[in-house]
Nucleic acid binder design. Structure first.
Lengths: 141, 141
DNA sequence: GCAATTAATGTAATAACATTACATCACTTT
DNA sequence: AAAGTGATGTAATGTTATTACATTAATTGC
């Protein structure tokens, strides 16, 4: 019915926690939420995350040392370069792509003969909703 | 004689180590190189790094959890958005700017009413020198 | 000069993030 | 059933970063 590969139990648990969360979670935060499911050691989470990162079902935000579920449907893999905008106020993450940005990076790489393996694009700031609620409180809480 | 502000001893030591290094260094690697100068605790390095990051004299590479000296002269502050290309083979870092990329990010932010505070742009891969030495060895060692 | 203030420093302890090593279990293949 | 493979569980440890607190140095006002 789709190209989605089977997940192991731990992978499914981790992905479910991330999908439900409305903010990025650290590996240890994920672990805390899975104690009741029997998970006890960081490695159980990191192993699941490794697989989910490989397939693009999860992304790591280097600037936060935290993880988010990919916001795209995952019948197909996440293709192309992805950027993340992270709200410092409500912690929500906005995932987007821009082919022009992708093209400029590609052009730089060609010019410098640099072989690109992976790209990290993260912008940090305040999202529209948090800006319009001028007190800085989280508009959704 | 210039706009450069005075550095404290620890700040000067940390900046000097980073300037001499031809690869990014972790805070603890910096500390190790400054034992002889009397530094003993991570906090001494982190405090110096905090100041140097504020002024743009040093950059943090989130994807490596490591620090590099800014490659630009620092009579003036580092202006605009900066991207880093990091060679996985020789660890050298290439700092560059691209006004078109900057413009596209700005356009996205305007469209989404996102107030950008900071941006992380890092690409990881293999640099020209390492590619042409097909064995993968570091051509400068 | 000297108290009051502020900024930088030194030290220790601990928190937060991530990996290595190794034993075990489950499933498939033969 | 033996061999091979991939996932799991557990413990220990390694690495990165921060908190808390005491001290020292530089600055300001008197």
């Amino acid at each position: 019915m789709s190209g989605r590969r089977a997940l192991t139990r731990n992978q499914a648990l981790v992905l479910e926690v991330l999908t439900r969360a409305d903010e990025p979670l650290s590996a240890y935060a994920i672990l805390d939420r899975l104690r009741d499911e029997g998970l006890r050691a960081p490695l159980q989470v990191y192993r699941a995350l490794d697989k989910l990162l490989e397939t693009g079902e999860v992304h790591r935000l280097d600037s936060l040392k935290a993880f988010v579920a990919c916001s795209h449907p995952h019948d197909h893999p996440c293709t192309g370069l992805v950027a993340f905008a992270i709200c410092e106020s409500c912690a929500r993450v906005f995932e987007f792509s821009d082919s022009a940005i992708e093209a400029r990076f590609a052009a730089w790489a060609v010019e410098k003969a640099f072989l690109t393996k992976s790209t990290t694009l993260e912008i940090s700031g305040i999202c529209a909703a948090c800006r319009s609620s001028a007190d800085g409180s989280n508009p959704s809480d």
